[in-house]
Design a protein around this nucleic acid. Structure first.
Length: 210
DNA sequence: CTAATGATGTCCT
DNA sequence: GGACATCATTAGA
């Protein structure tokens, strides 16, 4: 049972506009072997531009890692940070114009048990994370939804893909807050301070302040 | 509560 | 060789 796919046309846009379109949309991980789908609402994103954006992976031009950023919109770009965390991006903008939107926070809606099972075993004596925070950060999104670099290149606008997007079906008019992107202190100004991180006000699944 | 630290592998000047 | 679009855990106030 697949839902309506996310309209690719909404992603064929400037990075910030595409990021805004993705806020509130659903992220779906198809269940394997009769397992239930994992679904959640995207509540935090960051927009990244092309070679001119000193904070973007595209800042060195096309490379083996980032080359899908230069392709058509709606494609997954997954990279590994700090040797252990897989982060999901949605390629946006027209072919030839590198841009992507990093999915930084998702509020779990369905398949919560599978998301929790994907987590590293909780250390003895440690507090267990609440359901709402199982994907409250870019590395956690990858973990909770079983995403890794092998998924780079899949079409997120095709509901038959292992990971896909679906339009927002919830109540409209969410309050969007814009702040600088996280962890990009290496970039020159004005890029380090661009308010290209968007999140839904009041969501419990927004990543922790840094 | 905040701050510090270790883990870990790939990427690029 | 240095840095990295991060997270969990521990130490300290």
């Amino acid at each position: 049972m697949t839902g309506r796919p996310f309209p690719r046309a909404l992603l064929d846009a400037a990075p910030l506009d595409a990021a805004r379109a993705l806020l509130g949309a659903l992220l779906v991980r198809a269940g394997e072997g009769g397992a239930p789908d994992r679904r959640g609402r995207i509540v935090e994103v960051e927009a990244y531009g092309g070679p001119e954006d000193a904070a973007s992976h595209a800042r060195f031009g096309p490379t083996a890692r980032n080359r899908v950023m230069f392709g058509p919109p709606g494609i997954a770009y997954v990279y590994l940070v700090y040797g252990m965390h897989h982060c999901l991006n949605v390629v946006v903008g027209p072919p030839g114009r590198a841009a992507a939107v990093l999915i930084r926070g998702v509020e779990p809606l369905d398949g919560v048990a599978a998301m929790r099972a994907a987590r590293a075993p909780t250390a003895p004596g440690a507090r267990t994370a609440p359901d709402t925070r199982l994907a409250a950060g870019p590395g956690l999104v990858g973990r909770a939804f079983g995403i890794d670099r092998a998924m780079t290149g899949i079409d997120l606008c095709d509901a038959r893909s292992p990971v896909s997007l679906a339009p927002d079906t919830g109540p409209g008019a969410p309050v969007v807050v814009a702040t600088p992107r996280i962890g990009v202190g290496y970039a020159a100004e004005p890029w380090a301070s661009m308010p290209w991180r968007l999140h839904l006000a009041g969501s419990p699944a927004v990543s922790r302040a840094r």
